[in-house]
């Protein structure tokens, strides 16, 4: 299977693009559900949605696909990175890369690594605590309409009461912003979608997406820390 996926330089690009677009679609869902914290209703809406995401069979299946997609994106990215370094073993004495390309398009591996490090911490804070062990908070159950819900919202409040954690999360979102700013457009180019009719539309949507999604994510830890939401 590995040989079919990584058969050529172009198949590697296709998988990078497909997994990238898949991860982008995940960001939309994740961001939309988490944004329910801004209803400022003590976490009721958020906890109901978190419960749905944690119990629905389709979502749980997609969780496995998501892990597989992320893993493929990371492995493919690492292979590309090391192959590309090998293809250019000697550096120029006089470098002027900024004349013809952006720094972030050249730094996707670095930005991706920063995002991965952030993800490990993020998974430990939430995914690990709700799926593997248990929440750190004492009020780990919330009653909504007579039903018990796991209080993931309280876990968010606790995690985001630490300034260092909040800063790390915001830095993670900034890395995501730069990664998406190149990655979104790049994915469509890799798949061959670049017709004059919609090339500019993809670029515009890509730029807007790269700003809006990380900004909403970054606003979450900040809003908790600054007590804009209770």
């Amino acid at each position: 299977m590995a040989s079919a996926i990584f058969k050529s330089s172009l198949t590697k690009k296709f998988w990078m693009a497909l997994t990238g677009i898949f991860l982008i679609s995940f960001l939309v869902v994740h961001c939309a559900i988490n944004a329910t914290i801004f209803f400022n209703d003590g976490g009721k809406t958020f906890n109901v949605w978190a419960h749905f995401m944690g119990t629905n069979i389709i979502i749980r299946t997609m969780e496995i696909v998501l892990f597989a997609g992320l893993l493929l994106h990371v492995i493919d990215g690492l292979i590309l990175y090391f192959q590309n370094r090998k293809a250019r073993p000697v550096k120029y004495a006089y470098e002027k890369s900024s004349a013809s390309s952006t720094w972030y398009s050249r730094s996707m591996a670095l930005l991706g690594t920063l995002i991965l490090l952030f993800l490990i911490l993020h998974m430990y804070h939430f995914w690990f605590k709700t799926r593997i062990t248990h929440l750190d908070v004492t009020n780990h159950v919330m009653m909504i309409d007579g039903l018990e819900y796991e209080n993931l919202y309280a876990q968010m409040q606790l995690v985001f009461s630490n300034l260092i954690v909040v800063i790390v999360y915001v830095l993670g979102c900034i890395s995501l912003f730069w990664h998406l700013l190149h990655g979104f457009k790049s994915a469509f180019q890799s798949l061959g979608f670049n017709h004059l009719k919609y090339k500019n539309a993809i670029a515009f949507v890509g730029d807007a997406f790269s700003v809006i999604i990380p900004a909403i994510f970054a606003a979450m830890p900040l809003a908790f820390y600054l007590k804009f939401i209770q």
Binding site: K12, S100, S101, S105
Partner: peptide, 22 residues
């Protein structure tokens, strides 16, 4: 052509776009 390009040891495009500029 893509197969030969890979065999010759050229790297993989990551859509940086410097080639088009230069």
């Amino acid at each position: 052509m893509v197969k030969k390009m890979d065999e010759e040891g050229f790297g993989n495009c990551s859509n940086i776009g410097a080639c088009e500029v230069q």
